[in-house]
Computed example of a mutant assay.
Amino acid sequence: MQPIAFGPRVIFELPFLDGIPVTETVVNTWIIMVVLVVLSILGTRSFEKVPRGRQNVTELVVEMLNKLTVQTMGEDKKNFAPYMNTLFILLLFMNLLGLIGLRPPTADLNTTMALAIMTFVLIHASGIRKKGIGGYFKGLTEPFVFLLPMNIMSELATPISLSFRLFGNIVGGVIVISLAYGGLASLGEMIGLSALPIFQGGAPVILHAYFDIFAGVLQSFIFAMLTMVFVSLAME
C-alpha cells in the first residue's frame, strides 16, 4: 500500500466545462452507493411471512436501528428512522473503506460538510414544521432577547462542529496509517527487505483496528446520534 496523501487524488476529469476533476472521494462514494444498492436489493428480495436467511439479517438490522431512533427521539418521531438508518449505514461504510485500502470519503471535508449541512437543514425545517415560523424563531430569543445573536451563532456553529469532528477523526487516522506504512517501508529498505513487505503486512493491523473499525464505527454512531438529538431538541 502506497502512502496516502493528505488530500484526495484526482482520478480523472470529465471532458466538458474545461474539465471537471473527479477525485477518489467521489469515485469511492460511487462504489459505496453501488454496494449499498445491491445489498438493499438482495436483502429485501422475496420476503416471506416466516423470515429466514438474509431476510432475518435484514429485519434484525432495520429493527435495531429503528429502536435506536425511537429510544433517542421518541415514539412520535419514528418517521425519522428511515433517514437516520440510511445516514448511519452510509457513514459506516464510508468510514470502514480504509480496511480495503481505499481512502474513506469522510476523510474529505467536502463530504462531511455536505452531510452536516443536510443535518442543519433537517434540524431547522423540522423545528419550523413543528412550531411554525413565529414559534420557532421566538425560541431563538429565549431565555432572554439579548441572547439572540449568541443563539444564532450557536445554531450556525452546529454544521461546522459536526463536519470537523467527523472529518478530523477520520483524516487523522488516514494520515497516521499512511505514515506508519511509509515508515515501515523505509525500515524494510534499511535492512534489505524492500522486496518483502514483512513489516507492512502485519504491524499496522492494530492501527487499522483502532482507526478504521473502532473510530469508524464510533464516529458513525456519534454523527447519527447528534443528528437525532438536535432534531428532537428543535421540535421540543
Rank of each mutant, 00 (worst) to 15 (best):
L115S: 01
I222S: 11
L97D: 08
R9T: 11
L99N: 08
E75K: 15
F6C: 03
L140P: 00
T141N: 05
V34D: 04
L196G: 07
F164K: 14
P197Y: 04
P143H: 00
V61P: 10
L226F: 09
P143D: 00
L92G: 02
F16H: 09
P159V: 06
A215N: 15
L193H: 14
V217I: 15
G201T: 05
I133E: 12
V26P: 05
V34R: 02
S126E: 07
Q2G: 14
P15R: 12
R129W: 11
V217D: 07
T72R: 11
S126G: 14
V70Q: 05
M64L: 13
K78T: 07
I206V: 13
L233Q: 13
R54H: 08
L233K: 11
L87D: 03
I198H: 09
M118C: 14
F167H: 13
G192R: 05
A116I: 04
L122D: 12
Y181E: 02
G132V: 02
F214V: 12
G172I: 07
S220V: 06
N85E: 11
N85Y: 10
V176Q: 11
I133D: 08
G7V: 12
M118G: 14
S154W: 07
T227W: 00
M64S: 04
M118P: 09
E75V: 12
V34L: 14
E48K: 12
L207N: 03
P105S: 02
A125N: 14
S163T: 08
A116F: 04
L140R: 01
M73V: 01
F211C: 08
A185L: 08
P82G: 00
P143L: 00
P3D: 12
F88Y: 03
F223A: 04
S220Y: 06
N95T: 02
V171P: 10
L36S: 00
L96K: 00
N85S: 14
R165A: 07
T44V: 06
I198T: 11
R129A: 09
S186D: 13
T141R: 06
G134Q: 12
S163C: 02
L218H: 13
T25W: 00
V176P: 01
T112I: 01
G182Q: 05
G172M: 02
L91T: 03
F221M: 09
K131T: 07
G127D: 04
V176N: 03
G168D: 11
F167W: 13
M113E: 00
Y136K: 03
P197T: 02
P8I: 05
F47K: 12
I206Q: 08
K67G: 05
